[in-house]
Amino acid sequence: MQRVNMIMAESPGLITICLLGYLLSAECTVFLDHENANKILNRPKRYNSGKLEEFVQGNLERECMEEKCSFEEAREVFENTERTTEFWKQYVDGDQCESNPCLNGGSCKDDINSYECWCPFGFEGKNCELDVTCNIKNGRCEQFCKNSADNKVVCSCTEGYRLAENQKSCEPAVPFPCGRVSVSQTSKLTRAETVFPDVDYVNSTEAETILDNITQSTQSFNDFTRVVGGEDAKPGQFPWQVVLNGKVDAFCGGSIVNEKWIVTAAHCVETGVKITVVAGEHNIEETEHTEQKRNVIRIIPHHNYNAAINKYNHDIALLELDEPLVLNSYVTPICIADKEYTNIFLKFGSGYVSGWGRVFHKGRSALVLQYLRVPLVDRATCLRSTKFTIYNNMFCAGFHEGGRDSCQGDSGGPHVTEVEGTSFLTGIISWGEECAMKGKYGIYTKVSRYVNWIKEKTKLT
């Protein structure tokens, strides 16, 4: 034993070699072989497995989906700052455009905790909710729209109204504003409101030439003092309507412009014939205590009207009353817009006519005020429907199939267009061939041609 100890002390290297040989010859039971080890760690190889990531292109799944990435790591994937920024906006807080917040056709661009709407022409605001041009839906104005110097929408209202708090709607500024039905039992019968379409306001006024200088022999019209197929109006439903009495009662109609003036057809009036105007009328054979009678003290036909040349060209006249009318729910003026808007309103496509005229061709006159909704007829169809001249200051309205029309005794009465609950004068009943005849239409004086003249002559002093 002493000898062994001496050998170990003198030859430590020998001992180490012996131990190493023993270990190498022993069977290893701690580690699995290569094949079995792979069965336990069965993990798919990654895209760049075996390579240094710093030297390969980034992978979106590896960089940002398996674990949260930084902007720089995302930049490695896209290799483009702009594309990385677009991805980053949604990656950080989701897609803010998912709810489609942009209105009126706006395009949404996502941002971090926010979004941006790219608005089409005519709109602005956070969600493109603000109209900035009158060309689109009248700028959301209830009545009139004008573009300011910086191309912003400025709404306005006709006389007797003021802008509401929203700067879009119009509200009454006087007790009985024009064009409004205020009798409670008839307010439910107000005709369907007309909503502004998209309009090209630059070209809204037709490029028409008034044929002022045409000389033409007097034409022989049949029954051209021209509501057939209409309905009984309720008291106060058309408070701007008046009836004219002269040699015979209810020979023509008219509309209240203001307390002192009536507008009617020029062919209705004769110099030297006494005319009485009755406002607030409903049943011409009954006294309903809503009527107001006034005498006409002055007749002003349009300066281009000449019955000797043509009885229905420039067929418009103004009547001055001896005493002002007292405005109330049964006696209310009709609204008159400017030339541009009167023309736009007419193009809405349908209007209402009213009167006490004959209820059928050569038949009896109506006792109760009649009204009828009539569609506008395109000019080409209008011209083809008659052998008589249709001037540019006239328009056609009615039904091709016949059966409904204005008729004798309705002449001078109103053709009105309702705009968001307020009625505007767009025409004056003038003439036609018979009444409600198939293929024939009622012919009306186009008020847009005469609004400046009306307003100039009827100013209240």
Rank of each mutant, 00 (worst) to 15 (best):
E270K: 07
T422A: 05
L163C: 02
N328V: 00
D410G: 03
E142P: 02
L103R: 10
V257F: 01
L163A: 02
E73F: 06
L376C: 02
V278H: 06
K39T: 11
R373S: 14
C119T: 02
S11Y: 03
E456N: 06
I336W: 00
E171I: 11
W240Y: 02
A308Y: 13
G402R: 08
T461Q: 13
T225P: 10
H282S: 11
F123E: 13
N258L: 01
T209V: 13
N452F: 04
E418L: 12
G403D: 15
G439R: 13
E208W: 06
S114K: 07
Y47H: 13
G357I: 14
A397M: 01
A207E: 11
G413V: 14
A317K: 00
V30H: 15
H361P: 10
S11E: 03
G160P: 01
C178R: 00
V273N: 12
A192Y: 10
W240R: 01
I429T: 13
I275T: 04
T190D: 09
V368L: 10
C145W: 03
V278D: 03
P12Q: 08
D405V: 04
T342C: 03
V273T: 10
E27H: 08
C252M: 01
L425F: 02
N100K: 13
I17G: 00
W240S: 00
Y391Q: 14
N100H: 14
T332W: 02
N48A: 13
V326R: 08
T84W: 04
L14Q: 02
R294W: 01
K168R: 02
S182W: 07
L372H: 14
L20T: 01
D200A: 10
F238I: 06
D111S: 11
E434N: 13
L60P: 15
G230V: 12
G427M: 00
T133F: 12
E27L: 02
T276A: 07
G409C: 14
K438G: 14
T215K: 06
L19M: 08
T417L: 01
G50C: 13
S365Q: 13
C407A: 05
S169R: 10
Q216M: 08
E320R: 01
L319H: 01
C157M: 00
H289A: 05
C268D: 01
E67A: 13
L52E: 12
N100C: 15
G349N: 03
S350T: 09
W88I: 12
K247T: 11
A265I: 00
A366Q: 14
C97D: 02
R180V: 04
A380W: 13
K146H: 04
E67F: 03
S49D: 15
I262D: 00
V4A: 12
G106F: 03
E86T: 15
Q167L: 11
C335E: 02
V228L: 04
G280E: 00
V56M: 06
P177V: 03
E98A: 07
E418N: 15
K89Q: 10
G402W: 15
L376M: 05
V278R: 08
K457E: 13
D198I: 06
G355I: 03
S430W: 03
D410T: 12
L14D: 01
S385K: 13
K234W: 08
R43D: 14
G58P: 15
L189Y: 12
F55S: 13
D150H: 07
G253H: 09
Y161N: 01
D198K: 09
P120C: 04
G106P: 03
V227L: 05
H34F: 05
E320V: 00
V447F: 01
A308G: 12
E165C: 05
F144H: 01
E27K: 03
E86Y: 14
N343C: 03
K146R: 10
W261G: 00
N304W: 10
Q2E: 07
T389N: 13
A307N: 08
V154W: 09
E171R: 04
L244W: 01
D315T: 01
Q237R: 08
N203T: 06
I336D: 01
D322K: 03
E159G: 05
L189H: 13
E165D: 10
T81L: 06
C155P: 00
A9M: 07
N36F: 07
E53Y: 03
V416P: 00
S204I: 04
N310G: 07
C119G: 03
K39P: 15
G125T: 04
H289C: 10
E86Q: 15
P414V: 13
I284Q: 07
V243H: 04
K152Y: 08
S169A: 11
D410V: 14
M8F: 12
R191V: 08
E281C: 10
K440W: 03
L211E: 05
P101W: 05
I454G: 01
T332P: 01
C117F: 01
E82T: 15
D150P: 07
P12L: 14
